[in-house]
Structure formats: structure tokens, C-alpha cells
Write a protein that binds this DNA or RNA. Structure first.
Lengths: 136, 136
DNA sequence: TTTGGTGCAAACTCTTTGCAGGGTC
DNA sequence: GACCCTGCAAAGAGTTTGCACCAAA
């Protein structure tokens, strides 16, 4: 869990209530929310926040590496505040996305890919999507 | 390489020039094209095809399992006609997506995940996204 | 004749952008 | 005051939908 105020400062970004709220919304919601869910959440506390601000903030955060975008089926953009290497479980339609932490898998994959040496490509990150059915 | 006419028939879909064209566009372009690229490609041959038709067709194909959607950063929907288990190399901004075939990796992953038994989840498919830099 | 499927255009959703106002160093 | 950030509203891009027409079984 990072301190968002410090993180903003480190990146030369002003610490504003909106930015803090956006970051907190993502961590609290922790369902890899989209911009709408984030905005709704924040509006409970700051009813005046503008969607434009939310989108701008999210984009800034992604650029600075404070959060990351999660790959979806292309319908909406979704965000993740957890930057520790982890993977995701997807429902078939990709509406539901949950974390899958597996250090053993991480180890194996980075080692495997390092050895494999993909031609004309420099690997920066490896993400596993496990698609299937959630059983509740 | 499947025979699209047969495939359509098997799925109770009428064999129309548009449907065949959409399928061929995806295989020919083979850059995991979006609807726009597919439409542009088809228009060279059938200038009258409607975008609505392309979208409808793509959705139908995905539902029937004739093609699949590729996960993106949420900007646009992109499609893949190759249903054989394979993975993808992504540029950081996810604009460029290339195939990564690796049977050894497939073997390992399906075996690994099978053994691992993720609670409350039935695995149907595993996809690895390798994010990094293409060197041309 | 009934049932899809297509073209066209309008509608809708999600995201980006321009601009005026406000806060902060 | 210069700069950055925000709210608001409009614009833009991508996708979906409704409807009339057409073609094939």
C-alpha cells in the first residue's frame, strides 16, 4: 500500500483532493473499476468532481506508472492500483476480473521468458489472463 | 485454416458474401484488426458493406466461437481468427499486438494451472500477454 | 411466406478536448 | 503573475440499434 501523497509529489504532481480521491477509489473499490465506478464512488464525498477530471487523472496516473490499465475485451477502460506482478481471472465476457497472485508462477515465467529470448522483442512485463467461470 | 463456409453452415448461419468477407479480412490482415480496419479492407471489394453489418457479423462470430476478441487497453475491440492456443506480444500502449506461439509454454501452463486448482474457478483458457518493446 | 441478413442512419456510450475560473508557489 | 489543476460542456470516436428492404428456403 503506497502513500499516494508522496507518490504524487515524487512525480511532480500537485497533491489535490481529486487526485487523492481517485487513487483511493481504485484501491477501495478493488474490482478493477472503470471510470464510471470511480466517479460514482468519489461523488459520494465530492459531488462536484467532473468526469473529465477523473479521466485526466487516470491518464496521468497511468503515464506516471502510479496505476495501470487492465486489458479488457475493448468495451471500457479499467484500472488497477496494484502494481505488484500478479495475474487476473476473467469471466468469459470479461465483465468480472479478479486478482490472481502466484509468486511461483511469476518466478517460472520470468525465468522461462528470459531464457527463451523472443527475437526482436524486449520483455518488460508478463501478464497471464485466466479465463473461465467463477463459482460462487 | 478453416473453411468459413462450412463453419457458418455448421453454426446455422447463412453463408453470405459479407460474412465470408469479414472472416477473410481478419485472416488476411492478421494484425488483430479492429472493426475499422476490417471494414476498410472489405470495402475495396464490396464498397457498400455497412459498418453495422461488420459489427453485427463480428459479434455473431464471437458468440459462435468462430473468432475471438483480443483483450486491449480498452480503446477498441480487436479480433483474432486464430483459435489455436497462442499468446500475444503487446507494445506498451497495446497498439501493436503480435502472435506468440509456444507449445512448450502451453503445455506447462495448462498442466500447472490444472494442478494448482484455483478455488471457486473453472479454467477454460489461459492467455499470456507479454508486454514490451518491438525492435524492428 | 416466413425468416434471416443487409444497408443506412440515428442513437448511444465512453472518452477526449477546449476553455474559463481558481488555487498555489 | 505564471503555472497547474478543475469543472463544465461540447466534441469526437467507437459501437449498437431500429427499420425498411431484399434474398433465400
Amino acid at each position: 500500500m503506497i502513500n499516494i501523497r508522496e507518490k504524487l509529489a515524487q512525480n511532480g504532481l500537485k497533491v489535490t483532493p481529486q487526485r487523492v480521491a481517485v487513487y483511493e477509489a481504485i484501491t477501495r473499490l478493488n474490482n478493477h473499476p472503470n471510470a464510471e465506478a470511480i466517479t460514482d464512488y468519489i461523488k459520494r464525498k465530492y459531488p462536484n468532481i467532473a468526469v473529465g477530471t477523473v479521466y485526466n487523472t487516470l491518464e496521468t496516473f497511468v503515464q506516471k506508472g502510479i496505476i495501470s490499465r487492465i486489458k479488457t475485451n475493448g468495451d471500457v477502460m479499467r484500472y488497477d492500483a496494484d502494481l505488484n506482478g500478479h495475474h487476473h481471472l476473467y469471466s468469459r465476457d470479461a465483465r468480472r476480473i479478479e486478482d490472481y497472485h502466484d509468486e511461483e508462477l511469476n518466478q517460472f515465467l520470468s525465468e522461462y521468458i528470459r531464457k527463451k529470448q523472443i527475437p526482436n522483442f524486449t520483455v518488460e512485463d508478463i501478464n497471464v489472463q485466466i479465463v473461465g467461470k467463477f463459482i460462487d
